[in-house]
């Protein structure tokens, strides 16, 4: 049991990194990413291929995957050049994500198509005995989550963090204040992309086998649920959100032993319905999530008089 909990914790960790990436792009930057599953696949495949075909070690493969997804995301952000409405951008991300998954499925020569890539190396594999490897993997993944949260919080408190929020709240005002909005958007999406690349790499390390079916659109529902539950812009909350989603998903598997009358077919559908309903309910009743976004604490007593 305990080793199963450890393995689930690893899954929570890399789901959390993915959700954190989305939280930065969408929660902080206001750039919704409906192609998350495709970019996630890109990260996992880039990492795996850099090792299997490029001969890189796990460290450089991860860095490479982060760079590749960052560039891909940055390029996508360019379409907001003239149209800044979120709706158009969301549709574009959906399409690009779909396209990336099709490439993974169809380019046999590179990705082995539906067969998937196996034999993916893991970091620190030769340091420890296979039986205790899961502890190392958990430690590594947890470290990555901590580093991501630290980095994003640092970023939120930096001048760029303020630009990010300004672009989200009102890009016209941001532009009027002399901020280069397009460049900021590209950077927001690319930074999120790098984190998606990291999450994808961790996914590849954990499963050691990736194929296109692992990156279905359900991934998007889970990630959005994690971000909304945790609170948009609240990075620590995202970890909580990712844990809730995972416990809900895996818990429902154990729950089946209790309610045998439901067919698994229906159970799978119900699980997604619960996620979807939960997502909408949280949006309506608890839009701020469980934890709050970092806000610059202004000296309220001084500024109060200025407001009308």
């Amino acid at each position: 049991m305990i080793s199963f909990i450890i393995l689930m914790s690893i899954v929570i960790c890399f789901s959390a990194v993915l959700a954190l990436a989305l939280n930065f792009q969408w929660g902080s930057g206001g750039m919704v990413n409906f192609g998350l599953a495709g970019f996630y696949a890109l990260g996992a495949y880039a990492c795996a291929l850099l090792m299997l075909k490029g001969g890189f070690n796990t460290f450089f493969a991860t860095l490479g995957a982060m760079a590749i997804v960052a560039v891909a995301c940055g390029l996508v952000a360019i379409v907001t050049l003239r149209v800044t409405e979120e709706d158009y951008f969301a549709i574009v991300t959906l399409g690009v994500g779909e396209m990336l998954r099709l490439v993974a499925l169809n380019e046999d020569w590179l990705t082995k198509g539906a067969l998937g890539l196996s034999g993916i190396e893991r970091p620190f594999n030769d340091w420890v005995a296979p039986t205790s490897y899961s502890y190392v993997m958990l430690g590594f993944c947890a470290l990555m989550v901590a580093a991501t949260v630290w980095f994003l919080n640092k970023l939120a408190r930096s001048p760029f963090g303020r630009v990010v929020r300004a672009v989200r709240e009102d890009d016209v005002v941001a532009a009027t204040l002399g901020k280069h909005v397009l460049w900021a958007r590209i950077r927001i999406f690319a930074i999120g992309g790098a984190l998606i690349g990291l999450a994808g790499s961790l996914h590849a390390f954990y499963y050691q086998y990736i194929d296109p079916t692992q990156f279905s659109n359900i991934v998007i529902a889970y990630a959005f649920m994690a971000v909304i539950a945790g609170g948009r812009g609240a990075y620590l909350g995202t970890i909580l959100g990712a844990s809730i989603v995972m416990v809900l998903l895996e818990g429902s598997r154990f729950a089946k032993d209790l309610i045998p009358s439901l067919s698994s077919d229906q159970l799978a559908a119900i699980r997604i319905i619960i996620i979807g309903v939960g997502l909408i309910a949280l949006l309506i009743y608890r839009p701020q999530g469980f934890l709050r976004e970092y806000r610059l604490q202004a000296n309220l007593s001084g500024s109060k008089q200025q407001s009308p």
Binding site: V32, A90, D265, I272, I273, I275, G276, I280, P287
Partner: peptide, 21 residues
């Protein structure tokens, strides 16, 4: 509109899986 879009995405998952159910 972003919130509405995300809600519609969630709604899509719900509806499709009601059919599947």
């Amino acid at each position: 509109s972003i919130t509405l879009m995300v809600a519609s995405l969630g709604l899509g998952f719900v509806l499709e899986n009601i059919a599947r159910l």
